[in-house]
């Protein structure tokens, strides 16, 4: 299981400002080990953010998103104290979900 995400969600002018930092190697599958063998691709391919049962952002990623991905966006329709939930899935089928309260 991967390390937890760092999620910050704050109210800014009636909008929820979300910043997420995920812990993931995001291997492209093109990098080589010192012995010349390829490091297999290992990257997050889908991210879903939900709040109060509603999807607020969906993302599909390729391996060219940077290591330990950063993601920021804004949405309306939630208030201080509500919980947002972030789930990622990688190309190995591993998933991780973390939650944060909106401050």
């Amino acid at each position: 299981m991967a390390d937890p995400m760092r999620i910050r969600a704050t109210m800014v002018d009636n909008k929820v400002d979300v910043k997420i930092l995920m812990a993931h190697p995001m291997e492209t599958g093109q990098r080589k080990n010192p012995d010349g063998t390829l490091v297999p691709a290992h990257y997050i391919d889908t991210v879903t953010v939900t709040c109060k049962g509603k999807t607020v952002l969906m993302a599909e990623w390729g391996p060219s998103v940077s290591r330990n991905p950063y993601l920021a966006f804004r949405f309306t329709g939630a208030a201080k104290g509500d919980t947002i939930s972030v789930t990622w899935k990688d190309n190995h089928g591993d998933t991780r979900t973390d939650e944060a309260a909106i401050a």
Binding site: T55, L57, W61, F73
Partner: peptide, 20 residues
């Protein structure tokens, strides 16, 4: 293609991330 983001109603058409 590096990343693709879908915005449901209520989400601003804005996104920030980091790419290689």
């Amino acid at each position: 293609l590096s990343a693709h983001f879908v915005f449901p109603e209520g989400t601003d058409p804005y996104v920030a991330t980091r790419v290689k």
